[in-house]
Computed example of a mutant assay.
Amino acid sequence: MSAEKFDVQAFEKKYVARLEDRSLDWNVLKFQEEIDPKYKRAQMRYIGRGATANNDSNVIAAEHFTLSTMVLPAGCVGPLHLHDDVEEVFFILKGSVKALIQEQGKDEVHEIRLNERDCISSPPGVYRGIHNDGDEEALMLVMLGAVKPNLPTYPKGSALEELRIQRAKEREAIINGK
């Protein structure tokens, strides 16, 4: 009985994601930008589909978490949102941003300054967002702690929350391949 030889090319094809094979996806969160232009940002997926569940065959299949980079233009905001099932990590690669944190059921939004190579981990059940209040774009690494996180919710009564409710059915169809 002989052991199979390790196939490094097959391993590389399955487990390596190269920048040269990726492009910024300015459309994945376009629905937010259509509500308010300040929500403009782009995502580049590396591991998993993330909460948006976009079908991207160019990513490493997620086994335990998702990983992407995000470009946040100067003056733009990743709006307050809540993941009920996963923690979310923002690691600042370039630039400086304000992390926005709000407890569920509370009105006060707390701001925490994050500079290059700073990191924040937001646990499930806490509203979180990011504001690039600087003059240059910010680049972040974003990680979610599940293969297929639940679609986030937004503050009750907000235009984004109303849109989320409409899009929930569309997301399920994507995940189920319909």
Score class of each variant (00 low, 15 high):
Met1Ala: 14
Glu4Thr: 07
Lys5Cys: 06
Ala10Thr: 08
Lys14Thr: 14
Leu19Phe: 09
Leu19Tyr: 05
Arg22Met: 03
Glu34Asn: 14
Ile35Ser: 06
Lys38Ile: 13
Lys38Arg: 11
Lys40Tyr: 10
Gln43Met: 15
Met44Pro: 00
Arg45Ile: 05
Thr52Phe: 12
Asn54His: 14
Asp56Glu: 15
Val59Ala: 06
Ile60Met: 04
His64Ile: 04
Phe65Ile: 00
Phe65Tyr: 11
Leu67Trp: 02
Thr69Arg: 11
Met70His: 06
Val71Lys: 03
Ala74Phe: 05
Val77Thr: 11
Pro79Gly: 06
Leu80Arg: 02
Leu80Val: 01
Leu82Lys: 15
Leu82Asn: 14
Val86Gly: 02
Val89Pro: 02
Ile92Ala: 04
Gly95His: 10
Ser96His: 01
Ala99Gln: 07
Glu103His: 14
Gln104Trp: 15
Gly105His: 07
Lys106Gly: 13
Arg113Ala: 08
Ser121Val: 08
Pro123Leu: 02
Tyr127Phe: 15
Glu136Tyr: 10
Met140Gly: 11
Val142Asn: 05
Gly145Arg: 03
Lys148Glu: 00
Pro152Asp: 06
Thr153Lys: 13
Pro155Leu: 12
Pro155Ser: 12
Pro155Glu: 10
Gly157Phe: 08
Leu163Arg: 11
Arg164Leu: 06
Gln166Gly: 09
Arg167Pro: 00
Ala173Glu: 01
Gly177Asn: 11
Gly177His: 13
Lys178Ala: 02
